[in-house]
Amino acid sequence: MNLQHSINYLEIPSRDIASSKAFFSQVFGWTYVDYGPEYSCFMDVGITGGFYQAEVDFTLAKGCPLIVIYSQNLELTLTAVVAAGGAITAEIFSFPGGRRFHFTEPCGNEYAVWSE
């Protein structure tokens, strides 16, 4: 159900959509619907969105928003991120409400994963 004034879709730039799809599929189990060679939609991951072909990436250092993914097992997810070619940019640390780490996926975009 779409809620009035809620965030309900994300569009994420990707230098290589196939690489981004493979990474998030391997680590987080995401699936996709392709809309041509320059756009791929993901669903059922907490929010719907898509990867679009672009020659840019986003990081906190550039002042971009941080997309945070939930995991029940932070250490296991960190291991999966590294095994899939991600780079850890901030090791696991505590914050009020839980713990998290930051990483870049193979196309250079920065994300975080958190747990209680």
Rank of each mutant, 00 (worst) to 15 (best):
I17K: 00
M43K: 15
F28V: 01
Q53G: 04
Y70I: 05
D16K: 10
A61P: 01
A18R: 02
S40K: 00
A80I: 10
L3V: 09
P106D: 07
G49W: 06
A61Q: 08
G86P: 01
G46L: 09
S6D: 15
I88Y: 06
P37F: 11
G29E: 03
F51A: 02
A90G: 08
Y9S: 11
Y111I: 00
H102R: 14
L60G: 12
V45I: 05
F103T: 05
L76H: 13
F42L: 02
W114R: 15
G29W: 00
A80T: 07
W30K: 01
G97N: 12
C41S: 15
L3T: 14
A54N: 03
I67E: 12
I12L: 08
G97S: 12
C107D: 09
L3N: 14
S115Q: 07
W30M: 01
D44W: 07
G46V: 04
I92Y: 06
S25C: 07
A80K: 10
E38I: 10
R100E: 11
R15V: 03
S20T: 02
A112R: 15
S19T: 14
A61H: 08
T89M: 04
A61L: 04
K62A: 08
Q72H: 09
F51I: 01
G63D: 03
V45Y: 10
R99F: 06
Q72G: 11
N2Q: 13
L60R: 13
A90Y: 09
F23L: 02
V45T: 10
H5Y: 12
S25Y: 05
L10P: 07
N73V: 05
W114V: 07
F51S: 03
H102S: 12
E55Y: 05
R15A: 10
T77A: 05
S14A: 12
Q26F: 08
R100S: 07
V56T: 14
S25R: 02
L3M: 13
T89N: 06
T77E: 07
S71Y: 08
P13A: 05
